[in-house]
Design a binder for these strands. Structure first.
Lengths: 182, 182
DNA sequence: GTCTATAGAGTGATAGAC
DNA sequence: GTCTATCACTCTATAGAC
């Protein structure tokens, strides 16, 4: 018997590939192998609850794999973040669900989740950059720049259909984060 | 009598606010004040043709107001681009239609238009940065960084519901573009 | 009469909810 | 599976310009 834990990652990929509106229940059924009845049994409030569960899972994953290590990992934490981010977004081949939701009609509906995701990321990266030698007063601005840059790199890579563009932008951000004086 | 020229900007705002899938014909009728008959008279191929017309208009506008000035405007051109971009995107309050389409299901359908928009932008900015003193070999990478940064700033500002975040990221990009040595 | 622009009822298909 | 609402779209009817 498939529970939410097994289904949510499949939902996540479907929402990433097609967006909230584009991910029809028919598509979701196909992607999960479940009928509509089973889906509504797992997610009684329907599609919105599915998306909420996906956003929750994304946040939990980033909290564990990215944000917490950044906030406590010391000077080497930032470099590890870039590795994790590059892997997670498949070098620009995979969309950031939170970023995509922020640009779409879904923004108001999931506003709180979108805000905490990016706030947590910037907060944690800010701590790591400070640990890496950046001046505390400037670390937050640079953290914003990096987080925005990652989102922009995804947009660019998808528009150009060119993962190398993602890699180049990320590499620039990585070097900047590694050199506090620049 | 309303022609395509009067209707297309209204379509653009509707697509920007709701995305391609979210912009239903009912919404479009309301936003334009036209009935379906009139819309299909102006755009015989329907919604896809409307979106294509909007993307064409966006590209024409950027070509005239941003890309061409960048490519021929000399050292001051980059600063003017930032002003134009800040005004156009309403300091992050307005989505980039091309960026939003790149993240959504619309990517393949409009792939060629998405690619040329960003390619032209990066090409033109690359020329302007070189004119502004950046080393030719490094100008293109920096142009990519700036264009991606603008897209990321839009995502961030919308996710945080905070135009100031857009302003801060743009200001950083502006300073970087203005100082070739950094 | 012909033409173009308009409105909107009506089409089948498909949406999400249950 | 069944429901109703809504989807993109088609079609008919009508208006006024010429």
């Amino acid at each position: 018997m498939a529970g939410r834990a097994e289904i949510t990652p499949l939902l996540a990929e479907t929402f990433r590939e097609h967006g909230y509106e584009g991910a029809s229940l028919a598509l979701i059924c196909k992607a999960t192998g479940l009928g509509k009845g089973s889906l509504y049994n797992l997610f009684p409030k329907g599609k919105e609850e599915m998306a909420a569960a996906v956003l929750d899972e994304v946040e939990v994953w980033f909290e564990r794999e990215v944000f917490a290590p950044l906030a406590t990992g010391g000077p080497a934490a930032t470099a590890k973040m870039f590795d994790a981010v590059d892997a997670y977004f498949r070098s620009g081949g995979r969309v950031c669900l939170v970023g995509a939701f922020a640009l779409a009609d879904t923004r108001e509906r999931f506003a709180a989740r979108l805000r905490t995701y990016f706030t947590r990321w910037i907060d944690a990266l800010s701590i790591a950059l400070t640990a890496g030698g950046h001046k505390p007063r400037k670390a937050r601005g640079r953290a914003e720049e990096v987080v925005a840059g990652v989102q922009g790199a995804i947009v660019l890579a998808r528009a150009l259909d060119d993962k190398a563009a993602f890699a180049r932008v990320l590499e620039r951000l990585r070097r900047r984060a590694a050199s506090p004086q620049a």
